[in-house]
Design a protein around this nucleic acid. Structure first.
Length: 423
RNA sequence: GGAGGGAUGGCUGAGCGGCCGAAAGCGGCGGUCUUGAAAACCGUUGGGCGUUUACGCGCCCCGUGGGUUCGAAUCCUACUCCCUCCGCCA
């Protein structure tokens, strides 16, 4: 959520932001509702003030044994009027809230303007495309040949966009989770948390998934809980409605969770392999930062995520998302795109964002400054990394001509020292 | 699932329907004292919203929502969460 002051006092900044993002929103209507809302607040508060004063008078008069009948009649009238106005105010505030909650964050000035991912800017390339003296296969072929990824049976068990991992496949998934958690906790200073995988509506609203993106979420029947689409949701909300202490910041968490997404808008897209699943694993990095250092923290977070691929020795590039490709809650996002030789493409494997105070304002996450004032923290997060997509990357980059897979060195301690997997 | 108990400020814990945003203690912060620290003493110490250049002023918040009343932390009601015991259970 944006600061309501920005909307009133810096309307042109908001309009500019909406234009750059390619989002249409009736700012004028919001301003009208806002004015009505504030007018009603003023009027009800004036009446309540009168009511409080008269009530005190009655208490005093009763003590003195005087007659209070006229006062009480008058107060009844005021009470009735307050009731009416309060109801109108509640409706207006609901309208105001509904509008405020669907306005996207304002992009940072360093974000390039653009409409599609074509306009994203590559800011860094690490490593290089490996040379193969044979035609490298896409991971779905590798997975089926080695009998480690079973898409057909997963479809039978549940439906499309699910995968049954077997033997080396399941172990590789598990090894990557542990490798990433160990790397981030031991070397990058993150504290590991294991949060609930279902959250309530308020939590989903806090990070920005609701109210706008409900159709992307799996919702439980009979109780208003949702399966998390990313660990960002429960982990960022760890401190909702809390006031942190300036000295404690930054706070850094890493969490492994499965993620559940409907992928409603992706019919027919990425239907093969592990790329786009309804359920996938992810190790997520989350930071709570001081506002003045949050962009440095973003660069650090990005490097922490990149470090996973560097240690796996897999070629990737980093893109800075343009305004049109930027997520709803984010002010600035870098994507890490891993090289997949079997498909001859770069594929997003991590998304690292600074949300500034956008989520903190929704979730009420503040910190007490040393001068005693409370302020919203900045929240950040990034995949460190998406596990399924890392499995894709390992399989495609480490495949051998004989169909075997070389185990990346850093993963061997997590796989009983296995160096190479044959069927 | 059944039975009972509870929810008040950072924490502990009082609170007759009007004088309660709320006693007291602890903690925190500032000060006196001290070479320094501790102790002691004095002072101070929640949040949201609206308004204001600002000082300030006003409204709201005692788990959440509704109700009774001229007036609710206090009465009624529904819900949520926590604790204890029983049952079931990974």
């Amino acid at each position: 959520m944006l600061d309501s002051k920005i909307i009133r006092e810096r309307t042109e900044l908001l309009n500019e932001s909406l234009r750059k993002r390619g989002v249409s929103f009736d700012v004028e209507a919001l301003l009208k509702v806002d004015e009505k809302r504030r007018m009603l607040i003023k009027e009800t508060e004036r009446l309540k003030n009168e009511k409080n004063k008269l009530s005190d008078d009655i208490a005093r008069l009763k003590k003195a044994g005087s007659d209070t009948k006229d006062y009480i009649t008058h107060l009844k009238d005021i009470g009735k009027r307050i009731g009416e106005l309060d109801q109108e105010l509640r409706q207006t505030e609901k309208q105001w809230d509904d509008m405020m909650l669907i306005i996207p964050n304002i992009p940072h000035t360093s974000v390039p303007e653009g409409t599609t991912e074509e306009d994203n800017k590559v800011v860094r390339i690490w490593g290089e495309k490996p040379a193969f003296d044979f035609e490298p296969l896409p991971h779905w072929d590798i997975g089926e040949r080695l009998d480690i990824l079973d898409f057909k049976r997963a479809a039978k068990i549940t439906g499309s966009r699910f995968t049954l991992y077997k033997s080396f496949g399941a172990q590789l998934e598990r090894a990557l989770i542990n490798f990433m958690l160990d790397l981030h906790t031991r070397e990058h200073g993150y504290t590991e948390v294991l949060p609930p995988f279902m959250v309530n509506r308020q939590t989903m609203t806090g990070t920005g998934q609701l109210p706008k993106f409900e159709d992307e979420l799996f919702r439980l029947d009979g109780i208003d809980y949702f399966l998390i689409p990313t660990a960002e949701v429960p982990v960022t909300n760890i401190y909702s409605n809390e006031i942190l202490i300036e000295d404690e910041l930054p706070i850094k968490f890493v969490a492994y969770t499965p993620c559940f997404r409907k992928e409603a808008g992706a019919h027919g897209k990425d239907t093969r392999g592990l790329t786009r699943q309804h359920q996938f694993n992810k190790v997520e990095l989350v930071k709570f930062s001081l506002p003045e250092t949050s962009y440095d923290e973003l660069e650090g977070l990005l490097l922490d995520a990149e470090d996973v691929l560097r240690r796996l020795n897999i070629h990737y590039r980093v893109s800075l998302l343009c305004t049109g490709d930027l997520g709803f809650s984010s002010a600035k996002t870098y994507d890490i795109e891993v090289w997949l030789p079997g498909q001859n493409i770069y594929r997003e494997i991590s998304s690292c964002s600074n949300f500034e105070a956008f989520q903190a304002r929704r979730a009420m996450i503040r910190y007490k400054k040393t001068n005693g004032k409370n302020e919203f923290v900045h929240t950040l997060n990034g995949s460190g990394l998406a596990i399924g997509r890392t499995v894709m990357a390992v399989l495609e980059n480490y495949q051998n001509q004989d169909g075997s897979i070389t185990v990346p060195e850093v993963l061997r301690p997590y796989m009983n020292g296995l160096e190479r997997f044959y069927k």
